[in-house]
Amino acid sequence: MRPISVLLADDQPMIRTGFRFILEAEADIRVVGEAADGQEAVEETRRLAPDVVLMDIRMPRMDGVEATRLIAESGLSSRVIILTTFDLDQHVVDALRAGASSFLVKDGPADSLVSAIRTVAAGDAVLAPRVTRRLLARFAGMPSDTAPPVPPQLDILTGREVDVLRTLARGLSNSEIAAELGIGETTVKTHIAHILDKFHLRDRVQAVILAYDSGLVTPHTAHRTDRS
């Protein structure tokens, strides 16, 4: 099997060296290039077409948010993991909106970096329930005591697809969604694929953003239904 190719984009050489050291210890991951700023990250992504780009959010010339947006809009299959010093600030959310599949805090454990790369390279996204709740609490609509009605812009979804999107927006895994809705995990995957296809979304993170941008999920309902 071909190794997962990774591009490191960070303006600090020591950070890039540290990430390279961690990743090159893994047999299934290969670092194919480095970039010292956002503009170079975009250029190197176009040239190398890596599976995953580790993108620092704050860099000179062009920041990680704009670089992520350009990569997502280019049609390349490369997926972006945002690297940040601060857990879930506005820039991180902007990057997720721009097309990033995940974000990691730089001082996190090495195994979380390796795991995130493998997950994102496989076509999934990394967004834990705790992070999802904070996203909802900050950027969704006002709290409500009842589940909000299905917004008109989601009318193209079937009833079951709406159910899946609601649970997906709480950060549940496929197996957890299957257990909660009483359906098979393969069926969950099919519904998620239909949701992504209907709205031309890249991955689960974009589906979560759709759920709270449309008003399907509110902070109150997210906290009430998922207290993990």
Results as ranks from 00 to 15, higher is better:
96 L>D: 14
97 R>T: 10
99 G>T: 07
99 G>W: 08
100 A>P: 13
101 S>H: 07
101 S>N: 10
101 S>T: 06
103 F>N: 12
103 F>K: 07
105 V>A: 03
106 K>A: 01
106 K>N: 04
106 K>C: 10
106 K>F: 14
107 D>P: 04
107 D>H: 00
107 D>C: 01
108 G>K: 09
108 G>P: 06
110 A>H: 12
110 A>C: 08
111 D>W: 10
111 D>H: 07
112 S>I: 12
112 S>N: 14
112 S>E: 15
113 L>C: 01
113 L>A: 03
113 L>E: 00
115 S>A: 13
116 A>L: 08
116 A>W: 11
116 A>P: 04
117 I>T: 08
118 R>L: 02
118 R>K: 10
119 T>N: 01
120 V>H: 04
120 V>M: 11
120 V>E: 08
122 A>P: 02
122 A>F: 10
123 G>N: 01
123 G>I: 02
125 A>Y: 14
125 A>L: 04
126 V>R: 00
126 V>E: 09
128 A>E: 14
128 A>I: 10
129 P>N: 03
130 R>V: 13
132 T>K: 08
132 T>Q: 13
133 R>Y: 09
134 R>S: 05
135 L>H: 08
135 L>A: 00
136 L>P: 02
136 L>T: 00
136 L>V: 02
136 L>E: 06
136 L>G: 01
137 A>S: 15
137 A>V: 05
137 A>R: 13
137 A>I: 11
138 R>G: 08
139 F>H: 12
139 F>T: 01
140 A>P: 07
140 A>G: 10
140 A>D: 11
141 G>W: 04
141 G>N: 01
143 P>Q: 08
143 P>E: 03
143 P>F: 07
143 P>W: 07
144 S>M: 12
144 S>C: 02
144 S>T: 02
145 D>E: 08
146 T>G: 02
146 T>S: 09
147 A>V: 01
147 A>G: 05
148 P>T: 03
149 P>D: 05
149 P>T: 05
149 P>S: 01
150 V>A: 01
151 P>C: 02
151 P>W: 10
153 Q>V: 10
153 Q>K: 07
155 D>C: 08
155 D>V: 04
155 D>W: 08
155 D>Y: 07
157 L>N: 04
160 R>P: 01
162 V>I: 14
164 V>T: 07
164 V>D: 03
164 V>W: 07
165 L>D: 06
166 R>N: 10
167 T>L: 15
167 T>F: 13
167 T>G: 02
168 L>P: 03
168 L>G: 01
169 A>I: 04
170 R>V: 03
170 R>A: 02
170 R>P: 00
171 G>K: 06
172 L>R: 14
172 L>K: 14
172 L>G: 03
172 L>E: 15
173 S>K: 14
174 N>K: 09
175 S>H: 15
175 S>A: 14
175 S>Y: 13
175 S>M: 15
175 S>Q: 15
176 E>N: 04
176 E>Q: 13
176 E>H: 06
177 I>D: 09
179 A>H: 12
179 A>S: 12
181 L>A: 08
182 G>S: 03
182 G>D: 06
184 G>S: 12
185 E>Q: 14
185 E>R: 13
185 E>A: 13
186 T>E: 14
188 V>D: 06
189 K>N: 11
189 K>F: 11
189 K>V: 06
189 K>Q: 15
190 T>I: 12
190 T>Y: 14
192 I>K: 12
192 I>T: 05
192 I>H: 11
193 A>E: 13
